[in-house]
Design a protein around this nucleic acid. Structure first.
Length: 563
RNA sequence: CGGGGAGUGGCGCAGUCUGGUAGCGCACCCGGCUGGGGGCCGGGCGGUCGCAGGUUCAAAUCCUGUCUCCCCGACCA
């Protein structure tokens, strides 16, 4: 590709509103442009990257026997009513000229399941894996970070259909194989982590997480362990708690309503305090969740424990049913107490609110002083132990997920088959997503420096950028044209900077765009007979290559050495 | 949805408080010089100041409404 003919709008300055690195560099390097909130255009160079990611995905999906198809983005709302997903706030709705109600699909479970329900009748038709690379529409409450969270995006979504749970496990395992290879080949640093299955149920789920500062998730990592903090469990550090066996006593804590204030007034470590978090569930129950003072309630875990959604109790509800807000505790309260295991597992006397203004209790012992159910409802902290190893927390962006759906969609949509005995059974499904745009953005985040992007070969817009320094009609340009032709004959992907521009401008743009290998041909090259060769990643200088017959082949050899 | 911020030429910004002929840098176009790190000189093009109403002799500036975008949080099946 000749740069003189390429639509590549590079910018010297970052867009004023950009925060995330991938957002800044994606715009500055001329890969993407914004059309509206969460609506992005892929410009030619960026689209090449996206297509390279897609190609990797296709190869690996095909390799596990998946079959590609394409389903509509616009779908009848009725379909979504059958699965109850028409109530999702993020679902874009529209109607046609006849007033028929339509939606923009946010995923394609409904559509694919309807088709399979019509097309699959026998156990002989299963298993089946279908996939597509198709747009998704989501009316996100807050699009952000450039291409990382958008309202319209391309997703690779696949769906597996099996006769039973064992078949689902096998399809799931195949996806793990494919996904591991896809993310490896894309040049990403990634983790496969255990993830939340959500209120819709499902028997297992993992997310593929790429660590990067712009990420929206936190993952807990230890040797042999990786989980989204939403579901991570680990052994806590020991609390500094008072001795067991002492009688409960009241202590004055005037005005001390927060853990910090109470621990300051009593000169105790926050870990020896109990934090009470009253919630009201969607089905109308009031519960008190209790964790250590230095721990945080994990709302995802708590949701799965209570079995439905919930909200924090209001101050009025707390005052009416428990005690004065700021001084509440589980002692002497009629409500069910969900006590975090970190507390239940350690003997001792804890400090809690007394349910009286300006008073706390000392030496409170779970079981002796209040009844409880021990549950895991806290978020893990860095340094907690898994298999004796301390965990660390990293922010990451979700680039893919795999999910055992079971019969969540096949039952309401009537997707069933006849088994060998002639019995009608629901098809057991899984669904699996990958966001190519997020892969591209995460690779940028993970492979950039102060000068720009440093693409790995696998998804670079071009493998080689050939920079010529010289005026029109110069001998340099003539030599570069010849080299460009030779590289193309060998099948190399070359971006040829043949613009009538100064060297500074060309080098800066090359570093911004970040093709893995840069070849420079200028007057010096003609004098010395040698081409300058540089690897973008880490800006390494490579051995010069002699101009002449073998130059193009030598350049491809140099490229082969690069990541 | 809660909090904060911003809409002025393609990009980045000043001007708004204190109303008086819309400006700067970059980019772009023309000519010339330069040609190994965004170079220099000269000459140009381009904006009804987000939109709608209002106040005023006069509105980018004041008032009212509205739309859009960004950031933090909530949400994210």
């Amino acid at each position: 590709m000749r740069m003189s003919q390429l639509l590549l709008p590079t910018e010297r300055e970052a867009p004023a509103d950009a925060q995330a690195l991938s957002h800044v560099l994606g715009v500055r390097a001329g890969l993407v442009r914004q059309l509206g909130a969460g609506l992005w255009t892929w410009l030619p160079a960026g689209w090449r990257v996206h297509q390279k990611v897609e190609a990797i995905i296709r190869e690996e999906m095909d390799a596990i026997g998946a079959q590609e198809l394409l389903m509509p983005l616009i779908q009848p709302r009725e379909l979504w009513q059958k699965t109850g997903r028409d109530q999702i706030d993020e679902l874009f709705s529209l109607s046609d000229r006849k007033g028929a109600e339509l939606v923009l699909a946010m995923t394609h479970e409904e559509a694919v399941t309807v088709h399979v329900s019509q097309l699959v009748r026998s156990y002989r038709d299963l298993p089946l894996i279908l996939y597509q690379l198709q747009l998704k529409g989501r009316d996100e409450p807050r699009p952000r970070a450039g291409v990382l969270r958008t309202r319209e995006f391309i997703m690779k979504d696949s769906y597996s259909f099996d006769r039973d749970e064992a078949g689902l496990d096998a399809s799931y395992a195949k996806h793990i194989e494919a996904y591991d290879r896809i993310f490896d080949r894309s040049g990403l640093e990634w983790y496969r982590v255990e993830s939340d299955v959500g209120v819709m149920g499902g028997s297992g789920a993992h997310e593929y997480m790429a660590p990067c500062p712009a990420g929206e998730n936190e993952v807990a990592l230890a040797p042999g362990y990786a989980a989204n903090v939403e579901v991570a469990s680990a052994a806590p550090s020991a609390a500094e708690v008072g001795p067991a066996g002492a009688p409960v006593s009241e202590v004055a804590t005037p005005g001390a309503k927060t853990i910090e204030q109470v621990s300051a007034v009593l000169e105790l470590d926050p870990s020896g305090l109990l934090k009470a978090f009253p919630v009201v569930t969607e089905d109308g129950r009031t519960l008190i969740a209790v964790v250590r003072g230095d721990h945080r309630v994990n709302e995802v875990k708590l949701r799965s424990v209570v079995g439905c959604g919930f909200r924090p109790a209001t101050d009025e509800e707390i005052l009416e049913q428990i005690g004065p807000p700021g001084f509440i505790g589980p002692v002497g309260v009629e409500l069910p107490v969900l006590l975090d295991e970190a507390v239940a597992a350690q003997e001792g006397g804890w400090v809690t609110g007394a349910n009286k203004t300006d008073l706390h209790l000392l030496a409170v012992e779970p079981g002796r002083d209040f009844q409880f159910e021990a549950v895991d409802i806290r978020s893990v902290e860095a340094g907690d132990l898994v298999n004796g190893e301390p965990i660390r927390l990293e922010t990451a962006i979700e680039v893919g997920n795999i999910f055992k759906l079971g019969t969540r969609y096949s039952e309401p949509l009537g997707a069933s088959f006849l088994d060998q005995d002639g019995a009608e059974l629901p098809i057991v499904m899984g669904s699996y997503g990958i966001g190519p745009a997020r892969i591209a953005a995460a690779v940028i985040e993970q492979n950039a420096d102060e000068y720009g992007i440093a693409w790995p070969k696998a998804i670079a817009p071009w493998a080689i950028e050939l920079v010529v320094l010289g005026k029109a009609d110069s001998a340099e340009l003539e030599a570069a044209e010849k080299l460009y032709d030779e590289l193309q004959v060998l099948g190399a992907e070359v971006l040829f900077d043949d613009r009538d521009a100064g060297p500074g401008e060309k080098f800066k743009d090359a570093e911004l765009l970040g093709c893995p290998l840069r070849i420079t041909l200028g007057k010096r090259s003609l004098e010395s007979g040698m081409l300058e060769v540089g690897g973008r990643h880490g800006m390494v200088e490579l051995e010069p290559i002699a101009l002449g017959a073998g130059a193009a082949a030598a350049i491809l050899e140099a490229l082969a050495q690069l990541p």
